[in-house]
Design a protein around this nucleic acid. Sequence first.
DNA 1: CCTTGAACCTCTAGTGACTAGAGATCCTAT
DNA 2: ATAGGATCTCTAGTCACTAGAGGTTCAAGG
Lengths: 136, 136
Amino acid sequence: MFSIGRLSRATGVKVPTIRYYEEAGLMPPPDRSAGGQRRYARADLDRLHFIAHGRGLGLSLEAIRHLLELSDKGRDCTDAHQIAAQHLSDIRARIARLQRLETELERLADTCDHAPGAPCGLIEALGDHGQCLGEH
Amino acid sequence: MFSIGRLSRATGVKVPTIRYYEEAGLMPPPDRSAGGQRRYARADLDRLHFIAHGRGLGLSLEAIRHLLELSDKGRDCTDAHQIAAQHLSDIRARIARLQRLETELERLADTCDHAPGAPCGLIEALGDHGQCLGEH
DNA sequence: CCTTGAACCTCTAGTGACTAGAGATCCTAT
DNA sequence: ATAGGATCTCTAGTCACTAGAGGTTCAAGG
C-alpha cells in the first residue's frame, strides 16, 4: 500500500495527473486511509505503468482506455492490434505532413534576401499562398 | 465590403474561427452594417490569408501574432526569420520523435504471435516499459 | 504524547485553437 | 411583404493536463 506521492515517483506520472486519470475512469478509485488519503496496491502500479507507457507512445487516453478493457477481459487481441495499426498509420501520416512543412518552410525562408530596407520575402510569402509548391 | 460568410468562402477559414481570431486579437474588429453584421475590406482578406497560411504551416497563433506585428511595422526581418527557424527546429524535433515512436510501435506489434488463447504480446509489452529499446 | 511541516485532500479555473448549440436578429431575393 | 438563409452573441465542450487556493492528514523527531 503506497500513497499517491510514492506512486507518482515510481511511475514518473505527476500527482495531479494520477487524480485526473482516476476522474477520467482510467484508474479505478483506490482504497482510502482512515483520513481519506488514497492508498494504492501493486495492481494500480502496473496499470499506471501501462497508461504511462501508452501515453509515451502517443496513444490517446481513449485508445488506452480501450486497450485496458481488452487487457482486463483478455483473450482476443485483434482489436488491440487494430488500435496499434491505426495509431501507426496516424504517426506515419503526421511524419509525412511534417516533412512537407519542413521543405516548405525551408523554401520560404530562402525567398528573402535580407536586403536592408526591402520588404521581407518570408513575410510576403506568408501572405501569398499562391507562391507555395505543395499544399498544407 | 463583404460579409463574414464571403470572407470565409474566400479563405477557407470557417465563420466561427474568423470570429475567434477577432476575439484573440489577430483580426481587427471590422466595420459593421447598420444592423450590426461584420463587413470586411480587402486588407482583412489579405490578413486572414496570412493567418490561414501560417496556421497551415503549423505556426501557433502566438507566432502568427508576432509575425503580423513585424509585418505591420515592416523593416527589420531578423525576428521573422528567427521565428521561422525556431519553428523549423520544432518540426524537425517532432519528426525525429515520431520516427522513434514508429519504430517502437512496429516492434511492439511484432512481439505478439497471435497464438489463440495466449496473452497478447502487444498488451504485455505495453505494461512493461523495460522491454523497450529507446525512450519515449 | 506532541509538534512540525511535508504531503495530501477537494474544488475551481486556465491552457490552445477551435467547435457546437441555443435563441434571437438581420439581409436579400422574390 | 415575406420567407428563409445568414448572421449575431453567449455559453459550454473538446483534450490532457496544470496551477492555485484553502484546508486536512500523516509520519518522523523530540
